[in-house]
Each structure stands twice: as structure tokens, then as C-alpha cells.
Design a protein around this nucleic acid. Sequence first.
RNA 1: GGGCCCGUAGCUCAGAUGGCUAGAGCGCAUCCCUGAUAAGGAUGAGGUCGGUGGUUCAAUUCCACCUGGGCCCA
Length: 1017
Amino acid sequence: MSPRDWKSTLLLPKTEFPMKADLPRREPVRLARWHAENLYGRIREARAGAPRFLLHDGPPYANGKIHIGTAMNKILKDLVVRSKTLAGFDSPYVPGWDCHGLPIELSVDKELGAKKREMSDVAIRQACRKFAEKWIDDQRADFKRLGILGRWEAPYRTMDFSYQAEIAKAFGGFVDRGLVTFGFKSVLWCVRDRTALAEAEIEYEDKVDPSIYVAMPMPVDDFSSSVWELAALGVRRLYAVIWTTTPWTLPANRAITLGPKIEYVLLKKESEPGAAYLVADALVSQVTAALGWHDASPLPHSKKSGETIARAGLAPRYARPFASDSFDNFGFLLGEHVSTSDGTGLVHTAPGHGRDDYEVVRRHGIAVDDAALCPVDEGGFYDANAPEFLRGKRVVIPKTPDQSANDAVLSALARNAAEASSFRDHPEKDQSGALLLSKTSLSHSYPHCWRCKQPVIFRATHQWFIDLHAIRDEALAEIHDRVKWIPPFGENRIGAMVENRLEWTISRQRRWGSPITFLRCTECKEKGVVSHYPAVEGNVGEKQKREREDFFERVRETFRQHGADAWYDDERFPPSYFLRESSSSSSSSSSSSLSPACSRCGGRSFEKVKDILDVWFDSGVSHAAVLRSGDYGLPDPYTAKPPTPVVYLEGHDQHRGWFQSSLLTSVALTGRAPYDAVITHGFVVAGDGRKMSKSLGNTVDPQDVIKKDGADVLRLWVASVDYTTDDPVSEEILKRTAEAYRKIRNTARFLLSNLFDFDPAKDSVPASRLEPLDRWVLDVAAQFADEARDAYGAYAFHVVSRRLLELVTTDLSAFWCDVRKDVLYVLAANDPVRRSAQTAAYRLAETIAVALCAICPFTAEEIWEAIPGNAANPSALFLKSWSNLQLPEIPSSEREAWGRVLALRAEFLARLEPLRRDGKVGSAAQAAVEIGPGPALDADLALSSLSEEKLAEVLGVPLVVRSTATRASEQSDLYGGLTLLVRPAEGVKCPRCWQMRKNVEPGPDGICARCRRVVGE
RNA sequence: GGGCCCGUAGCUCAGAUGGCUAGAGCGCAUCCCUGAUAAGGAUGAGGUCGGUGGUUCAAUUCCACCUGGGCCCA
């Protein structure tokens, strides 16, 4: 006869909650339900009227699949939104997309191929729109799959008609403030395709160019004599030596740039008494070697810094070549970009043909607005601004040697060299007296057009700018005084960038974007004059101001209705369309109102400017287009009372990008920063800390993680890293994350499985009647909840996830759950002690679900709905807040007492180990403890209401004996030398509760007295 | 080349204003349990705190330089 089956009399855990998460399969099901029941909308309704908190989405660019960095960014945002909701706020989230711009246009170019040439602007733009829409759909599906909660059915898109209208309005606002200017700027230019190129359209390839040294004469006059003791040095002729690989830019020379800290000397040749050549001290040997000047050496006491030379303050100081007036130049300028790694340390500066050149001139406050600064036309030919004998020569890719600008320039210079008198009156001679000192050739890396593969040039072209001078101080004040930067170094970073930024070039010669809505007078254009309507200048009369306002309002209305495509549709919306009076204009217009005229020539024929705005302008005005306009279901956060806090959260690369464009536009238009706080995160890198790249094969694809582990694991990873630095991700790291996930899941499952017969309404034990151990564990949960709430408040998500994991592993799984099994399984269902433990388990499960609901929403809800009483309305979890958690706390004295008791437990476990090693006991359940006398311990036990019996439960042993004897060998460090003896427990293992008991009944079916009482019979 | 930032055990993180044998969780090793079971528990081994120099009675913590890495510029 087999022994009786006591197991069936136990209340063993029971649950439907699966141990295996199977997230890749289950998450989509839950997602579909959230969508079907409009969870986002329900949360909005439930939180209506609550204090509002606004995370404003920075729009990702709609041209490809999301990568791990995009995923992390969106998950972090979701953590903010969900944790704020959890904190009781109404925290809406309207996701957005950045839709205009070059990358999309280029992709569409590629798709269209030759067809593009026959397509209208509007048709091209529609193709771009389709392309963006496709990727928005793709990305939206991925974001939703990540569990990001938001207004996905109505996101904002910078190509929305309403958004385009707001862009145009914002642009008008800039014009109104007088911040928009028009001028020249050096941009990359392909002379074959006759078009400006963006950095992304450039390929670097080797090219052979002339390498020349040129000496430009400096007059021996008051200026030069104020710097050097020329008379004493015996100098009668003075030259500044420059080096260049683009001789064709010499006719555009306007300055020589020196390094402020670089030391310069005067070189003298034995063979050429009376002449001196200015070069950088550090480059003397390099230059003399290159020129073959074996007899050259620096003049004594001629060493001067660039700063000294340039600041001497007397102009002009050198003769520039190829000019009718050689002294018509900006003289010596200072530039930090000057180096002594090659050349002469004196940089030939042509603001019409170089980016640095342009910058250095602008930084000296010199306007670059004269067409003569760039004597090269669209095809790369010298134009009327070049000396007559150079006109028609081509600066790059000449078809014949005769057409070569470089050759023409070099021979003109050569005619000067060595004072060859026979050329004195040659018509194709440079008159400045510049000397070609040396000409060799050099192979170097040079930018080429990616389409036609030809070398490109820098060429000054008409561009639109936003002048940042007027708003810089305001912007800096906002950066430093209003905005909270998280982490704090963001303040430095963006502050330095804004301080050093000269201007914002906002025009692009492209089609896919929001247009710069100005008209240009065609009559003036024929005369080579630029005249715009409405007035560009800030300082205009009332009438012009009103005209301008009307015009931009007309544009805004049109775009709102028809989109910015209207600007490109000259048939339906000719220039005159925009010149009609705005419908919102209040003036009683006479029916015979004349269309406006060009302020310069009085002409009435206009064409549209077809440049588009820099895409950073588009996304930069999202605060206006999305937050202020009301077009996307959001009440204006800035005028709300009290104002709604607005937070931006992006990678720290956006200090130069969106954070800055948003700040500048908002300051210019409204005088304040658009955000109250800016959170930045680092970049996702590979496991070894290096950047991810497809060629290295070290990328992690979010799709793969979702397919393998599920979105919740990816989310837990995001929540576990300190996002303020770079964030490595690798298979190993994700494996660790998945393990942590399983730990949390299994512990929750244990709690749930012990609630199968628990009805919270009927069976809950009030806090005052909870068992000491359960009071303690709920206090631990309360402490955790406080810390988690604070950490969420500080956006320190990794602190939340770490603390949650610690709670779950240490306090729950390894201790409370383990020790509580006896009570939960063995006692009668309704035993108050068991109900106490269940009450604790119930609250703990709730706590885990709530704490986890932002980090792992799928799993949190799964836990939540498995809690008794919640199945009917699982997503109610997402309407909970911390205050819904009922976690009784205990006095700190009791908490501290528990701390010491648990130290006693640790000591006991350590002392148990030798017995286990010797095979005397298997586990704590087979051990007994004899504890010596200790008044301090007695006090702690009293504080924590622990009888000897309950202390035994805490230690997980069947018996604790207090003895009066003190044996030195058993002394511990606790309680001033408390004695602690661990030994095998006496008695017999009860077949029902598996505890070692002395009171087990004899016979094959004998059980202990406690079990007998439970079982009855 | 410049600006900003980062570098604590295999992994993720703690380590106010410099001060005990640098901590936690995970992982790992060994052991236990088999009534959370493709689970659970215990114990333990792991760190020249990126490197060098300096300030100090004392530095992971302050300073300088170097090195590796990231972002943004040039």
C-alpha cells in the first residue's frame, strides 16, 4: 500500500501565466487589442483635466528603415510619456516626420532617372511626397510594434499642407523682423552640370593640379615700416608669399589670411639684396627647399606674429594680382584655420571661391555682396568681372589647353617674373608686380561631382540667410537662463555653437521642400539687377510692411489649401495670384487695386524665387506648426495657464541640428525658447564601443531583436543603460537583458500563481493585521516605489530598472518568496497568516506591474490582467498612477531592526555552508539554530514583532532555540558577539510540509501536528 | 586640427563636497533542492577604478598630459 498522497492536500501554486514569454508571437496580439480599443484615446480621456506634460517629438527623416538608434530614441520618448502618465499627468504624444530635403529628392532622382528631365516641378514633388509617405508607413509600423504609444493615426508631417503653410508663415515672420538677408556665398558647384551641390553629392578623388608659390608685392611704406625696421634691415622690396593649387582663383583674391599665433619672418636671399619675402617661421626650410633657395635665410629680428602684422591697422598692405586697382583689397586678415602644415603660412583668400575664405572675410564683418568677388560664371568661364584677356577661359575642365584659366593666369604671372623687361608692356600681363616663384604639380584629393565625376569648384552664388546677430544674445540668454539641459553639458555644447555661428544659410537650389516665397522683378533681372517683392529689408515703411504681411498671409492661406506645390504651379498660381489682396486683410480694398510694382524699376512683371528652405528650417518651426497652431490636436502649451512644460529629447548630435534650429526660430518669432528642458542621449555603438557600420558587420537590427526576444526585451535594454553616454549593444548584452527579463517575469509568475484562490475584495488582510514579514516586504516595495517614482521624475530610467531587478531578485525571489512558500502551500486556505502572505503577493504583483508598465508595457499588462479581478479590463493598468498603489510603510526603527535581523540571516547562511559541505544538512529546512543571549537582538525582535517561531520562518529553518549558554567558538560579529550555533535539526521530516518536526505522528501516514490541524480528520 | 563628452569586475550599473579591506545585480564556478521545475536556493572566485605624472598626510574621486572611443565641426 503506497503512502498517502499528502501533496493533493497542499495549496500549490496554480496559474495560466506562462513561464515562457513568447513575446514575438504574443506582443502583436496585445498590440492589435490596444489599437482596437483606442488605448491612446482612452488615456487622453481619462487624463483630461489633469496637469499637462508635453514631450514634443523630433521628427525622424522619412527615407529608410528604422535602425537601433531610432528605436532607442523612440523608446526613450515612450518611457518619458508613459512615466509621466504614471505620475498622473496628461501627457499626449504626437509623433512627427521630417519629409522634405535632399536625401529624398536624390533617391527619387535615382528612381526617375532620365524621366525627371521631362517632369514638371509639381510632378517631381509629388513623386517625392509618395516616397516619403511610403517610408512613413514603414517606420510607423515599426514604431508601433515597439509599443510606442501615440497619436499614430494623425501624426505631423512637415509636408502636410497645414505644416507647409506654417513654415511659410514663419518665414514671413523672419522677414518681418528684418532677419532675412540676401547675398553671395561660396558653395560647391559643378560647372558641367551648372548646379550647386550639397556635401552629400561630393566624391573625393585624386586630381593633379599646379602647385605654385606666388610673391605678392607689399609696399615699403608707413604700414610695413611700422611692423619691421625695414630701413635698418636694408629692405627695399617686400613680398608676401602664398601657395596655392588653384591659380585660377588668383583674380578673385581679396585678402591674405595669417594665423594670429603663427610667427612670421622675412626671408632674404644672398643673390637678391634688398628684397625680403614674408613666410611663416616654421615653414622656412620647407619653403626654401621647394623654391630651391639655397642662399636664403631669415633676417634677424624680423620675427612677428600674425596678430602683430594684421593688427598694425594701416591699409592697403599688398598688391593683389589681376586687378585694375591692385590695392583694392581687404589686406591682411586673421584666421584660425591657417596652419603651418603646408604652404607658407600666408593664405591666399578669395571669398568668392572658398568656404574658409568666405568665412574669414565674413567674420571680419565684410559683406560679400559684390558680383566681382566671383568672376566665374555658371559654366566655369571667366566673365565680365575678370580682366579682359582672361574672359572666356575655363577654370576647370577646359576643352583645349588654350582655354585653360590656370595656364593663362600662370603665363601672365610668369611675364612678371625676373623682371623680364621684354614683357613690360605685354597686354596679357598682370600689372601688380606679383612674382611666380615656383611651379610644380601636385596630386591631391579633390572634390568631384558624383553625377558627372568632374572636379567641382567653390563658387559664390546668390543665397538667402538668416542674420543671427540680432537674436544671438536672446538665444544665449534662453540657453543659460530658461532651459534645463539633461545632462548638463548640453548647455555648454549648444551655447558654444550658437555663440560661434555666423549666419544661417537657409536657401537650397532644390525642388523638394518648402519654397522661399519671394518674387523677383523680371525687368530688373534682364538688366542683371536683383529686386525682390515684397521688400526684403527689415526697415521699411508702413505701407510696404502691410503689403508684405498681406503677401505672406496670402501665401499661407494658399499653402494651407493647396500645399506648397501651389508655388510650383505657375498656371494655376501665377505670381500675380499671390499679389492679390489677402482675404483676411481688413482694408476696404478698391476693386481697381493695382497689382504692386517693383520698388526699384516700377515694373509689374515678376517670377517666383524657386529656391527652397533648408530642411532644418522646416523641422525647426515645429513648435509653431505643431504646438502653437492647434492643427494636431494639441492645445498651445505656451499660452496655457499655467504653461505646459515642453520637453525635447534627441541624440546629442541635435545640439547642432534640431535643438538649435528650433531655438533660433522660436527666439526670433516669439522671444523665447520652445522647450523648458532638453534631454539628450548618446549614440548606440557596438559591444566594443565602436561605431556601428554595415561594413564592419557589427550592427544590431531592431527587427532582429523583436523577432528573437520581443519588443519588451529591447525596451528593457534601453531602460537599463545610462543613455547620457554612448550605449553599447551586442548579442551578449541583449542576452543579459533577456535573462533579467526572465527573472522579473518568473518572480511575477510566482506571485500570481499563489493568488489563484485569492479574492482581493474578500480575502485582503488590512495593513494593521498583516504578518510582520509581510508588513516588511510591503514596506520594501513602498521604498522601491518611492525611489522608482523619483528616478522616473529625473528621467533616470536605468535606476528604475536596476532597482526593480534588485527588488525582484534579492528581496522577493531569494528571500520573501522562498521563505513564504511554507505558509502559502501548507496552511489552510483561509488561515489569516496565509491570507496575509497572499495580500502581500497581491500588492507586490501590482507594484511590479505598475513599475514595469512604462518599461515593458506588454509584459506589465500581461501581469496586470493575471492579477485576480483585473481580467475584465487589462489596459486599466495604463490609467494607474503611483498613488493607486497601497503600500503600507513601517516605522524607520522597525525597518532598521529588520535590517539587522536580515544580517543575522546572512550570517546564519554562511555558517550553514560547512554543514552542507559535510553532507550533514541539505538545506536550511533541515537545520536548527541556537542563538545565545542578546538583549539587543531581543529589542530588534520586539520591534519587528518576531517571535522565535516567526524568526524561524525568516531564517527558513524549522526551529530557533534561544539558549542561555555562550560559547566563544560560536561568536559572531553581530549584536556585540552574539552566539550562533547551526546544527542539523532534530525530529522527522513531515511528509506533508517537509519540515523537520519532533511532533510527527508515528506510522506510514503520520504528519506533524500543524499539518494535522490543517487537514483535520 | 578644434569644441563637447565618455572609459569602475565578463555584462549593466552604484560609488555627495578626496579618507575604512572599491559595492550591487546579472553572468561564471561549486554545491543544494526537485511542491516557482526549460524554474528556485546557497556559497564563492572575479577589479593595477584606461595609462603616466602632479597636488595632498591621503585620489577611483582634484589638476596636467597621454591613450582608446563617441558626437559635432574643420
